[in-house]
Amino acid sequence: MERIKKDFTTLTLVMIPVAIAINVAVGQLVILLKLPLYLDSIGTVLVGLLAGPWAGAITGTISNLVWSITGLFPQAWAWAHVAAIIGIFAGLFGRFFKRTPWLWFAGGLATGITAALLSAPVSAYIYGGVTGTGQDFIVGLFRATGASIIESTLGQGIVSDPLDKFVTFLLVFLVVLGLPRRFLLRFPRSENVT
């Protein structure tokens, strides 16, 4: 409890909407560059790392709720728990960031696998196995082999998510290395990164 209170400083509160905006802007940049990734959780991972797992969870959840409420991406609410888990994992693996970076990157892979496991049932049981994006092509390939809907969405997730989250954790690593130390020290989990 004490730790959570310490994590949610005004600085954290202000960083969360900025992180959500980063999620959206980078997500759109990736679409512009036509890359086979999402990278729409960079902000969430950043908050998890700098302000702890619960701040990360809030960032992910609200990110998806904001997309739904504003009508930009109304289907996003159904994956809010996945976004939350990504923030939590970033917060938990944050302790390895400085001393054992390879464990931080492994955390990216673990996050991806968990995200795939959690999001597959949503697309399978709520949205009929599709997300209305190019990723549905992979679902189709699995279906063509005779796999069930849940197996296919799971397969698609395992193909896409670990790579995406690995790249996300890698990019966050590079960005944080570029931040001045004086600035990093202001965050509640600065011990992760300095």
Partner: peptide, 25 residues
């Protein structure tokens, strides 16, 4: 080539916005 374009775009966007956080707080 497109993937290589990512970091030069992403870096400035994230850095500049994070530096604003302190004043906003």
């Amino acid at each position: 080539r497109r993937a290589r374009a990512l970091l030069p775009l992403l870096g400035p966007l994230i850095l500049s916005s994070l530096m604003d956080v302190e004043e906003r707080a």
